[in-house]
Amino acid sequence: MSYRSQLRAGSFTAKVALVTGGGSGIGRCCAHELASLGAHVVLLGRDAAKLERVSAEIRQDGGIVDAVACDIRDEEAVRQSIAQIVERHGRIDLLVNNAGGQFPAPLEHISAKGWQAVLNTNLMGGFLVARECYTQSMKPRRTGAIVNIIADMWNGMPGMGHSGAARAGMLNFTETAAAEWGPVRVNAVAPGWIASSGMDTYPDAIKPMIRNLPKHVPLGRIGNEAEVSAAITFLLSDGAAFINGTCLRVDGGAPNARRHYALEPTEPSPAFDGFHRAVTPDIFKN
């Protein structure tokens, strides 16, 4: 089997695409799709073992890939890693700024250290990677496309206020960079509730709530990684050549649901299952 992308074959032939957080979840899926469309994919993340596992998958599927281990919160490490990639490949054409992480907690229980850790990963790290890709490769060549992955943080993010603040900051950074960095295009994708490996990392106490999420989505289900990747790859593609500074929501309309309007029980909408190596999170297997 191979990746079933909605973009035409060869859409990213000869492009160098950097995917942060490519060792799991949405980053892994998007790396597979980009490679299937002809891109030379470079995975970047902290866990070298995870990166190598995904690299092996992509090679088995006939794609071209290599990986660089880097903590995106370390400014000098990011600078050196991007320089290494540019030296090895000559340029970076595309950036999927996906790496991130958070933990569930009410605001009153988040320490300064915990707050800063989430902002460093989801805001500072994303900024550093984007800045270095822009200054070291995209600005000199006056071309490139960046997609920053944020989250459904509209109207606040109760239970994960640190992540909501960071993601909102990343959206504003996206809009600012779109103005300052043209003709390089900078956009964002905001996934809603997506079935990915990250859901298995949450405490058992909130897993019943996660299983109940489809009831709050107008489309009657949660999304999958391929549906997010489809939005990312579109924004990176030539078809999005005049799209800049926008955010594409991939959330089934969940933020549009309102407390005063009860959603009628409905059959789930058909899903796009393009990722041939997708793995259902354990939380949804039973």
Rank of each mutant, 00 (worst) to 15 (best):
I146K: 00
K207N: 06
I149L: 15
S137H: 11
A179S: 07
S163A: 15
S137G: 11
P214H: 06
P218H: 05
A226V: 03
F173I: 10
A179K: 15
A168E: 07
A230R: 12
H162Y: 01
M209K: 13
G144N: 07
P158W: 06
G159Y: 03
M209W: 12
G220I: 07
E175P: 03
A151F: 01
E175T: 09
E175K: 15
G159L: 06
I210S: 06
I150D: 01
P208F: 02
A177E: 07
K215N: 14
P158T: 10
A205T: 14
S229L: 09
I149A: 06
M153E: 12
I210F: 15
P218G: 02
G198P: 01
A195M: 13
A151W: 09
G156P: 06
A145E: 08
S163C: 14
A151Y: 00
L219H: 08
G198K: 03
N172E: 13
G182I: 10
I210W: 13
L171C: 06
K207G: 08
A179N: 10
G169K: 10
D152Y: 04
V217W: 02
A178K: 03
L219P: 01
M157E: 13
G182R: 14
G164T: 11
S163D: 12
K207E: 06
I149D: 01
G159Q: 00
L171F: 04
A195L: 09
M170D: 00
W193C: 01
A145L: 01
W193I: 06
G223D: 04
